[in-house]
Design a protein around this nucleic acid. Structure first.
Lengths: 351, 351
DNA sequence: TTGAAAGCGTTACCAG
DNA sequence: CTGGTAACGCTTTCAA
């Protein structure tokens, strides 16, 4: 129901019109511009003026309208944060931390959640319509979409994904390096046959981890490798291990899973389905360093992403680019941390 | 004189001015109002007009400015979603699902994340400034804050918390009922001495679960109860169990933890710290039905929240109230589902 | 330091 | 169905 009242729209119980700077100005007996100035940062307003205005404002419960402000300043003070279900939400905290970092800088977060990483079209349309000042995305965009964004002059920062050959900013954890560590440790400890549990085909992160592992295995001269593919979830972790066994007939020396949750699934399936214990009978490693990986029953050997530094970095990187659109793209890559859990037999740790 | 799209501020590489409906109108040779109408739902525009406008719009990459629209329609099409770190994010999916439900209704989500559940003040100010159409909150507000919101005419829906004696809408899982089930099952199976692992003191959900359990225990005539308190995390789950043992000297028959993660911690600490196995030596139950509770190594007996229905319900409830502010408050309470895991000895399941 | 007036990009209203 | 014009609530010159 639209409010047709233009003259008498003062104080009905529900649709009460919100006070505007004009209302405050009138009550305080000053000009509207004065009110505006009082509520700005670099204002020039006398103490007397300030007080009168604030009194009136409080009396009316006035709050500057950020929407109207955005319209005139051409700054919405909102950024879009895009995640997909695939977005390996290793911690829910990623989102919380991001939001807090932005919040500290006076930037609001407009959240977009994709069912699949391919649903970016509609979402992009919305972000553009809402005139977000910047985009932080943990989902991929097509080159055409990126061009659209570029044309609109909106800075973008990718989180844990990056387009090669594209001039875009990104913050990521060096997945290849992490996998290299894991492979090296496993090979050094004598493992020679490997199972790989990949992530879903459209996950960039999953892909990087898989190729990182495969490259290093090949560099180490390992050839006995069996791959299967899951969806990052526990159940497929179990299914993948079973599938691995079926494909090979006998267990590999080690299984490299694309994330911790699937690694956990593998541990369970190995034990319950095949009577194999990690690390005695088989080594199993994951990636991420999520909470459950530290549960005593699993104690997964993994690589932990420096989530806090990554979110922090991503947020400030985006804000920098909003404030200075001329800044050239920058890619920041963070090293993870190898966690020597009990799910894999590694060589003894030396200095 | 209004500035039409002219030679001055057109196409510098970065600050490129976005096309407005005036630009489109000029290029299409129609009025600005016509353009506006074409981009509206209940528009009245001829096919010919539509086509001409769309061609021009595409050529210019025009997108209606949702900010400007919000200003005139008095509808931002944004809702605030408030979570706190305490917000037992049993699944990250809660947020994702919520966002998707809203998205389907053409509503955007402005995310607010609180460090502590008490930090609502600044956040409230922001929500009001951005003129959100509604608020969905998994954090508590003070009565004064609620009044402010009420005065602003913004509908609120609480998620998994509700103020008694307050006329507010809410969606929640019936925690008391769930605890009642757990207690009844445990008592029926012969457990007589209990440990309670509470949640943090400022968590409403934790409080409800605790009192739910205590009430039912008392109704069942159980008096041997020891309580300790954690923060919903795995580590405190372990610490709590140890503390429980220290307090009591001997293990209770059963431990009721305020959530699954702490229950998992208890299972681990019981086994590793005290050589007690669940369910042979002790029964341990949790609450939520999170993913890790289903891992084979734990298989926690718990009550699962119907997250999908809850988020769905919360979103539509809020949207209803945005569309009809006269709607009276409504409290929806969902029953959970008892999951008979392997971490507790229960009586055999009958029909 | 203050006030008047011109936008920001839409939608709403009202004649034609 | 279409075009002109007035809001929406603010920030921003520009004079005073």
């Amino acid at each position: 129901m639209r409010k047709t009242a233009q003259s008498d729209n003062t104080s009905d119980r529900t649709g009460r019109r919100r006070a505007t700077s004009y209302d405050v100005a009138e009550l305080a007996g000053v000009s509207q511009s004065a009110v505006s100035r009082v509520f700005q940062d670099g204002a020039s307003a006398s103490k007397a003026m300030r007080d009168r205005v604030m009194v009136a404002a409080n009396k009316l419960g006035y709050r500057p309208n950020a929407i109207a402000r955005g319209l005139i300043t051409q700054r919405s003070n909102m950024v879009a944060v895009v995640i997909s279900k695939l977005t390996n939400l290793y911690y829910p905290e990623v989102l919380v931390q991001l939001t807090q970092h932005f919040s500290e800088q006076g930037v609001r977060v407009l959240l977009f959640a994709l069912e699949n990483e391919g649903d970016t079209r509609k979402v992009l349309e919305q972000m553009l319509q809402f005139r977000v000042d910047g985009i932080l995305t943990a989902a991929m965009f097509t080159p055409e979409q990126l061009e659209t964004i570029e044309n609109a002059g909106i800075p973008v920062v990718f989180y844990n994904r990056t387009l090669k050959d594209q001039l875009v900013s990104s913050v990521r954890c060096d997945q290849e390096e992490g996998e290299r560590w894991l492979v090296d440790e496993l090979v050094a400890a004598g493992h020679r046959t490997f199972g790989i549990v990949e992530g879903p085909p459209d996950s960039v992160v999953g892909l990087e981890r898989k190729t990182g592992a495969l490259n290093e295995l090949s560099a180490q001269g390992i050839t006995d490798i069996t791959s299967v593919s899951g969806d990052f979830g526990y159940e497929t972790g179990r299914a993948c291990f079973a599938q691995l066994m079926k494909k090979r007939g006998s267990p590999p020396d080690a299984v490299i899973a694309a994330n911790d949750v699937m690694a956990i699934g593998c541990v369970d399936e190995a034990r319950e389905g095949f009577g194999l214990r990690a690390p005695e009978d088989i080594s199993i490693v994951g990636f991420d360093g999520v909470g459950p990986a530290r549960y005593a029953a699993y104690d997964i050997t993994t690589v932990r992403q420096p989530v806090h530094r990554m979110t922090q970095s991503a947020a400030s990187m985006l804000i920098e680019r909003i404030e200075d659109p001329e800044l050239s793209p920058e890619k920041r890559s963070f090293s993870g941390k190898l966690i020597r859990g009990g799910s894999a037999r590694l060589k003894a740790e030396d200095a």
